[in-house]
């Protein structure tokens, strides 16, 4: 420490300005944390590779080719479907990563370093949400539009001419990326509440994979229609409407519109983040 002759003699970044805690700085910090871990790179790579690979596979093997062509009315929605079909799998990678973003810090003790630097805590939580949410959204966009681009020359082989000029189709592609990000943020919030990787991942997957199945079984047994309508408000079911390929076509009754699905998932995220924020403020780190 050659220059520390007085308390403030060293300006840490070499400029004259003294270091101060800012939300911009917190965002930078969270970005460095996110990209400096292998799990992040693996999860995002998985999303891109599985997303595009699955799209190509479907485009090459779709039975539509042998069924005498695809009706004009659903040409566009079929192309959307091909580009977003893998989201059922890639969402799981987003859920795992979203959870690890926060539980990884609790598990290793890193959270104490984080809270020592950001003692008011909540800016750190929101910084994580913003950085992880935005990054995942961009990775989702790259994957989905990449899939659309790669499958474009293949689709005519099965009688589909991709045409995304209709705003509803474009919105569905963007909505797919939004779903990927929001589902991940849902898991992040759950992780902030549960604080243990295994428990948080299990509960997130439970909500996303198991609850809808339980709802289907229950409604099949009881014939109760309300269970089915309630199930459409579950985070995953609502979120999946964001990239519904029937968007633009007559939205069949009983389903949420894409923007409604978006708002429902957003509300889930907000509610969980609120609980996480209250607990984070209150608990010892």
């Amino acid at each position: 420490m050659s220059t520390t002759t007085a308390q403030h003699s060293v300006s840490a970044d070499g400029a004259d300005r003294l270091p101060v805690l800012t939300f911009g700085g917190i965002l930078r910090s969270e970005w460095i944390k996110l990209v400096s871990l292998r799990s992040t790179i693996w999860c995002y790579a998985l999303i891109v590779v599985v997303g595009i690979g699955f799209g190509v596979l479907i485009a090459l093997t779709s039975p539509a080719a042998t069924a005498g062509g695809v009706p004009d009315a659903i040409q566009g929605s079929t192309a959307v479907q091909v580009a977003t079909l893998a989201l059922g799998f890639t969402a799981l990678a987003s859920v795992v990563l979203g959870t690890l973003v926060i539980t990884g810090e609790y598990g290793t003790g890193m959270i104490r370093s984080t809270f020592a630097a950001v003692p008011t805590r909540l800016p750190a939580l929101f910084g994580k949400v913003v950085v992880f949410g935005t990054t995942t959204f961009v990775v989702g966009l790259v994957t989905i539009f990449g899939t659309a681009l790669v499958t474009a020359p293949i689709l005519p082989g099965i009688g589909v001419t991709p045409n995304f000029t209709k705003p509803a189709y474009l919105l569905a592609l963007v909505g797919g990326a939004g779903y990927l990000a929001l589902v991940g943020v849902f898991a992040l919030a759950l992780g902030a509440i549960v604080r243990h990787s295994a428990g948080a991942i299990a509960s997130a997957l439970g909500v996303i994979l198991v609850l809808p199945t339980v709802a289907i079984i229950l409604s099949a047994i009881t014939q109760a229609e309300w269970i089915q309508s309630a199930a459409s408000f579950l985070p995953d079911a609502a979120g999946a409407r964001m990239f519904a390929s029937t968007a633009g076509e007559a939205a069949s009754s009983g389903f949420l519109a894409p923007w409604q699905g978006f708002l429902v998932l957003l509300a889930w995220d907000a509610a969980l983040l609120l609980v996480a924020a209250v607990l984070m403020k209150r608990r010892d780190a």
């Binding site: 840490a12 300005r17 800012t22 700085g25 930078r28 910090s29 944390k33 292998r38 003790g109 959270i111």
Partner: peptide, 24 residues
């Protein structure tokens, strides 16, 4: 109190970044 999956320099960069503390 350090994430085991990160390098020392990235840990310090991440902690410092909150306050605009840089590479130097």
């Amino acid at each position: 109190a350090i994430h085991t999956g990160r390098s020392a320099v990235n840990h310090l960069l991440a902690v410092g970044a909150t306050h605009g503390i840089g590479r130097k």
